[in-house]
Nucleic acid binder design. Structure first.
Lengths: 301, 301
DNA sequence: TCACATCCATAAGGACCGCTGATGAACCTT
DNA sequence: AAGGTTCATCAGCGGTCCTTATGGATGTGA
């Protein structure tokens, strides 16, 4: 049994009109065309679906069953059509984000995404760069926000924004540095608090200081930026705080003070990645634009 | 946007296999055939639904939306197929029945109908012959049980069973008739209780007595056979009781006594009607067989 | 009662669709 | 660098589906 949508459409028209000729007009075809499709449908089904009476057409019991199910099929098709017509897309958008960006960018980004009908079914994955890139390559993600340029050429990146690093610590630690904030590489590596390995933020902080991870005082095992900030606020050391995170973390960790580095400020480039095969236009550019907008608000706010 | 089932099927195969060639094999077509259909689908949708990566195929967000909806469509089609494959039919069977048959035949018939999977969605209409015939002609009914041969040749009838009339009344009224039951036409018209006009049973009773309705003592306005039987049981007159109804009515109306007429017994022919255009075989003959079987049980029981 | 209209089925011809088989381009593997 | 993937493209062919034309059945009006 291999019915076609055309047969179902014609049949529903016939059921509605009760009349071959009128149903054919409704379908913008000639009456023989519709008759032949109905005939083909009945051949497939094995029984007549309508009785041809002199004064019109009557559904058989089986015809009524067919009508019921055919309407369901057409409803499903209508739903599909509508979903495809949505320019915003309708499918789940699988977005990855590194942990040093996600909690600061998302509160601003999500409302915009929803307003633009992109976040309707947004699926978020927070993970470190390596894992995000792997999942992106495998197609389990559609895009990812990272702060490290991809090495593989199967990924393409668009820059979102530049996120300067601030120096953060307790009031007295910062005061002890003097009135002028030092050059990054003048900092004492022994005072630096870093994130766990795997977080690009730690590596980047070391890089701007001209240091390797080996020379850092210790890996505190601090798994998250909020934790790190609380440690720094209690005077346990200094840390690099992305400006993106500054407002939220200063509010959350009383006693935390930040100072900007002198120009040229050290910074990280936040990027939006996609597979190179992903069509660039459309939702991807929309998403990038929204994230930029959200970042501006976070920085300004 | 005018997607075809073929496109959806191919697309689902592709989504499942993640591989054009394997999806094509799955669909028993060559790879170009599938590629072209996917291409056509993407043209309709307006965006790519899969990304072609070197190592296989990944759905785009829109592709995932399409997958979701396509599965719904295919599920609806599967439901339709299954419904059509049911030899029993799946549609509502619209059955009409006259009031002097329905309450007696149905208790036996319904279980059999259900067992044979015909009564799955049986729609019953109890009405007098004229109305049943009208609704049958208009296609609002598929079949009708009546006791009057149709005059129109747009209806066809198959005989179900013969239902003899019994004479029923109170103990003393029946006794007063003597040991032998009289010929129908020897009955005193003044003693006869009849159903309302419109019920064929009343007309038939008069007919076998060689009388017209005018000569009957009165129309009691008794709208139903149970009422009539209760009147008769209380000695208000005699009535014709179809054997089909005898057991039930005697049980329900204490004091009601029935006697059979001498041969040739007056009787009514109970028929199953269909539109002449309704295909005779299949469900219609099944239904007729079941009703005959049910009638045999009623008569025997 | 006969002509006519209406309705659906059927037949023949043509346009288009979709499949196959062959080929090509890009990429990965060895 | 060669060979084997992958998917895309093309030409040719067969089938599907449409249209126009026609036929048979039924109902209707003069």
């Amino acid at each position: 049994m291999n019915l076609t949508l055309r047969q179902l459409r014609y049949f529903l028209a016939l059921a509605e009109q009760g009349h071959f000729t009128r149903a054919a007009e409704m379908m913008h075809v000639t009456q023989p065309a519709l008759s032949m499709q109905i005939r083909a449908l009945e051949d497939e089904v094995g029984n007549p679906v309508v009785e041809r009476t002199p004064s019109g057409v009557v559904l058989t019991p089986q015809g009524r069953a067919l009508e019921l199910h055919a309407r369901r099929v057409m409803a499903a098709m209508a739903g599909l059509d509508q979903a495809m017509r949505q320019p915003g897309r309708g499918g789940r958008l699988m977005l990855g984000m590194i942990p040093t960006v996600a909690p600061y960018l998302l509160p601003e980004a999500l409302p915009i995404l929803r307003a633009r009908d992109i976040g309707r079914d947004l699926h978020l994955r927070e993970a470190q760069t390596d894992r995000l890139i792997e999942e992106l390559s495998q197609g389990r993600l559609d895009a990812a926000v990272v702060a490290t340029p991809p090495d593989s050429d199967e990924l393409a990146a668009v820059p979102l924004f530049t996120d300067p690093f601030l120096l953060a610590g307790s009031q007295d630690r910062i005061a002890r540095l003097g009135t002028l904030c030092p050059e990054p590489r003048d900092l004492d590596p022994g005072q630096l608090l870093l994130l766990d390995e795997g977080h690009c933020l730690g590596d980047q902080a070391l890089e701007v200081c001209g240091l390797g991870r080996r020379s850092a005082r210790l890996d505190l095992g601090a798994a998250s930026l909020p934790t790190l900030c609380r440690l720094a606020a209690q005077g346990m050391g200094l840390t690099f705080l992305p400006r993106l995170a500054a407002h939220q973390e200063c509010a959350a960790a009383p006693g935390l003070v930040t100072v900007a580095f002198p120009d040229p400020q050290p910074c990280r480039e936040v990027l939006l990645l996609r597979r190179a095969t992903t069509p660039a236009g459309g939702w991807f550019d929309d998403l990038a634009g929204i994230l930029v907008q959200a970042a501006e608000r976070v920085m300004a706010g």
